[in-house]
Structures are given as structure tokens and as C-alpha cells.
Computed example of a mutant assay.
Amino acid sequence: MENVNLPAIRDCRQPWNKGRVVGQKRPLLPNHVWAIRVRLELAERKRDLALFNLAIDSKLRGCDLVKLEVADVYAAGLVKERTSIIQSKTDKPVRFEISEGTRKSIAQWIADPLMIGSKFLWPGRFHERLHISTRQYARLVREWVRSIGLDPTSYGTHSMRRTKVVQIYRKTGNLRAVQLLLGHTKMDSTVRYLGVDLEDALSIAESVDL
């Protein structure tokens, strides 16, 4: 029997990323941050305001942010000005500041009746889930950016992580400071994360007059 070469049969399943914007998500701009804060304050969404503010200040990955405990940020009746946690990805500590506005929103959230007896800072709605999931956090981020007219496909949880460090880098050019704030073990990881390129380096160089 003669052998016949038949064309290969290809899987026609739709690509997982069809219609999605993939790649690095944009950081929020300062006016975006303030617009979202105002909307959350007016809506009296205490948890979301505290979560949004701490996401910006802490620069934590979503997996670490959702697992924060009350004791991580609160002691002796006050919200801490600085704190540290062990990162899930690297198993290394990272420190972060908690600004005055963020401390105020966290204190208001902790005082809410919904927080009575909760070990976690962002408790889950169901008994089997002790804290919100990273998927829930991602949905909240999409909701926040959509509320001020931004395209939710261009932003994500890493937008929250990148927002403050991008501003720090633009104002100081200090990559080492950004590396420490993000808890990166390698400088090239920080460079890739910020999207630093030759134009950035030249702009920094041009601002220094010797």
C-alpha cells in the first residue's frame, strides 16, 4: 500500500491572549491616583480606599498584598509608619513606608465592624477563604481604572506595584533605591521592570552639569 503524506492537523483552539493587551502594564500617573482616591472616598468604600493606598505605598506583589495581616501594619493602637514582610517569591524581607494618608485610611478600615476579629487586613467574604484572592484584587484594579475612564486592558496589579517607583526613578534616577524598594535581588530585574532604556539614561546624564 502506497504511503500518502497527509497535511498535519492543527489545533484550532483560540489563543488565550486573543484580543488582550499582553506585556508590561502601565503605571498610574499622579492624576490617576488622585482621581481614583476621590471616587473611593466619595463612595465611602473604606476597604477599597485602604487597599488602593497601601498597594501604591507598599509596592508589593499582589500575592503578598492580599495576605497582609493586621499585625503587619498595626500595633499599640496605631498604624505603623514603616513595616516589613517576607516576600513569597524571593523569601527575602522588604521594607516599605506607609504615608500619612494611607495610615488614616487603614485606621478607618480597621475600625470598621467588618474587621472585628479578623486576622487578615483584607478578609474574604466566605469562611473557607481567610483573605481576598489575587484574582479578586485584579478585578478591583480593573474596576478602579475603568471608573476614571482608563482602558482596563492596559493596567493590572503590577501597575499598582510600579506606580510609585516609576515616579521615584524619574525624580531621582536612583536605580539602587528602586531595587531596594521593590525587593529585587538583581539590578537588571529592576531595569527591565522599569523599562529603563538609553533615552532614560541620556536624560539623566543631561541633567548633570559638571
Rank of each mutant, 00 (worst) to 15 (best):
V4E: 08
P7N: 08
I9T: 09
D11G: 05
Q14N: 13
Q14E: 14
P15S: 10
W16G: 01
N17D: 14
K18G: 03
K18V: 11
K18W: 03
V21Q: 07
V22K: 08
G23A: 06
G23Y: 10
Q24D: 11
R26W: 11
P27S: 09
N31F: 09
W34R: 13
W34N: 14
A35G: 04
R37M: 13
A43Q: 12
R45K: 08
K46A: 14
R47L: 11
R47E: 13
D48F: 04
L49V: 05
F52L: 03
A55D: 02
A55I: 02
S58E: 02
S58Q: 02
K59C: 02
L60I: 10
R61T: 05
G62K: 03
G62I: 06
D64L: 03
L65W: 00
V66C: 00
K67C: 04
K67N: 08
V70R: 09
V70E: 07
A71Y: 00
V73W: 07
Y74L: 00
A76P: 00
V79K: 04
E81G: 15
E81R: 07
E81A: 13
R82A: 10
T83D: 04
S84W: 01
S84P: 03
I86C: 01
Q87A: 08
Q87S: 08
S88H: 12
K89V: 06
K89A: 04
T90H: 06
T90K: 03
P93D: 03
V94D: 06
R95G: 15
R95I: 00
F96V: 07
F96W: 03
E97L: 14
E97S: 15
E97V: 15
E97W: 10
I98N: 06
T102D: 00
R103G: 10
K104D: 01
S105C: 14
I106M: 06
Q108V: 09
W109I: 11
W109K: 02
W109Y: 11
P113N: 10
L114F: 03
M115K: 05
I116C: 00
F120P: 05
F120W: 13
L121D: 09
W122D: 08
W122Q: 04
R125C: 07
F126I: 09
F126W: 02
H127I: 12
E128T: 05
E128S: 11
R129I: 04
R129T: 13
H131L: 12
Y137A: 06
A138H: 12
R139K: 12
R139Q: 10
V141E: 01
V141L: 08
V141F: 06
R142Q: 14
R142G: 14
E143F: 03
W144R: 05
R146G: 12
G149I: 09
L150D: 07
D151A: 11
T153Y: 07
Y155P: 07
Y155W: 05
H158W: 01
S159H: 08
S159P: 06
M160Q: 04
M160Y: 01
T163M: 03
V166C: 14
V166I: 14
Q167N: 07
I168A: 05
Y169D: 05
Y169R: 05
K171Q: 15
K171A: 15
T172H: 11
N174A: 10
A177T: 13
L181W: 00
G183P: 12
T185G: 13
K186C: 12
M187R: 10
S189V: 13
L194K: 05
L194F: 03
G195T: 13
G195R: 01
V196Q: 01
V196L: 04
L198N: 14
D200H: 15
A201F: 03
E206W: 08
V208D: 12
L210F: 14
